[in-house]
């Protein structure tokens, strides 16, 4: 708030001497302006209003933006703020998107249904060893859809459409392409290989060849 001028204080000053009013006016505006600049730089530099932490204005980075910060709280740069987009004026209400159950309640229920459907498909191979080809293909398809929805949510959360429309479009289409590629990949895997659950079981329980050879010998000795 240091950049706010106090007109009352200045008017008191200028009213006291009317004869050399213009000279005083110029002087007052000059000092006020430079003071404003200095304090705003100090605010930006010190990150904090406490006088003990103030640094000298000579350490101002040269590429600082021209606009002075109003806020006195600390700036922590995890990510630089993205490009700012201002829609409408101060009195315009926030736009309400058109309602659509396809993007709302139906989508929500579908997401949950997909997640819930993965539970029996995940538990079954633990009980039965592995899945038959149809169930295994269903598991693959379910995981792909669940992953696609999850990635979509992440992109929506971290790449704002309003500020970064091009980046959003890039990620959106990259995800679609990736999902298609992965779906074809798993179709190939399911068609040519032993299936997802059986493959995981094979890799998970893989043992060295000499281990399986040594074991019976040791058992025989004991």
């Amino acid at each position: 708030m240091a950049s706010v001028l106090r007109p009352a204080a200045i008017s008191r000053q200028t009213c006291s001497l009317v004869s050399n009013r213009t000279a005083l006016l110029q002087q007052a505006s000059r000092t006020r302006f430079s003071e404003t600049l200095r304090t705003s730089y100090l605010l930006r530099e010190s990150r904090c209003l406490s006088t003990t932490q103030r640094k000298s204005p000579s350490r101002i980075p040269s590429n600082d933006p021209v606009a002075a910060p109003f806020h006195t709280s600390a700036r922590r740069q995890i990510l630089p703020p993205g490009p700012q987009v201002i829609e409408g004026g101060v009195n315009d209400p926030a736009p309400v998107p058109p309602t659509s159950p396809t993007h709302g309640s139906y989508h929500w229920v579908f997401e949950r249904a997909m997640s819930a459907a993965l539970i029996p498909l995940t538990i079954a191979p633990f009980a039965a060893g592995s899945l038959n080809p149809v169930m295994d293909a269903l598991l693959c398809a379910g995981i792909i859809i669940h992953s696609h929805i999850g990635f979509q949510s992440s992109i929506i959360d971290y790449v704002p459409d309003k500020r970064l429309p091009k980046t959003r479009a890039f990620f959106w289409w990259a995800l679609r392409a990736a999902t298609v590629v992965v779906a074809i990949g798993f179709f190939e895997f399911e068609t040519n290989d032993v299936g997802l659950t059986e493959a995981i079981k094979k890799i998970w329980t893989a043992k060295r060849k000499e281990d399986s050879y040594v074991e019976p010998v040791l058992r025989g000795v004991a």
């Binding site: 930006r44 933006p65 021209v66 606009a67 002075a68 910060p69 109003f70 806020h71 709280s73 600390a74 700036r75 922590r76 740069q77 995890i78 990510l79 630089p80 703020p81 490009p83 700012q84 987009v85 201002i86």
Partner: peptide, 18 residues
């Protein structure tokens, strides 16, 4: 508009996880 955009870019980033 450009002044407002520049002003908004120097606002503190909030909230921070820490």
């Amino acid at each position: 508009y450009s002044i407002l955009k520049a002003q908004r870019a120097v606002r503190p980033v909030s909230p921070h996880l820490t």
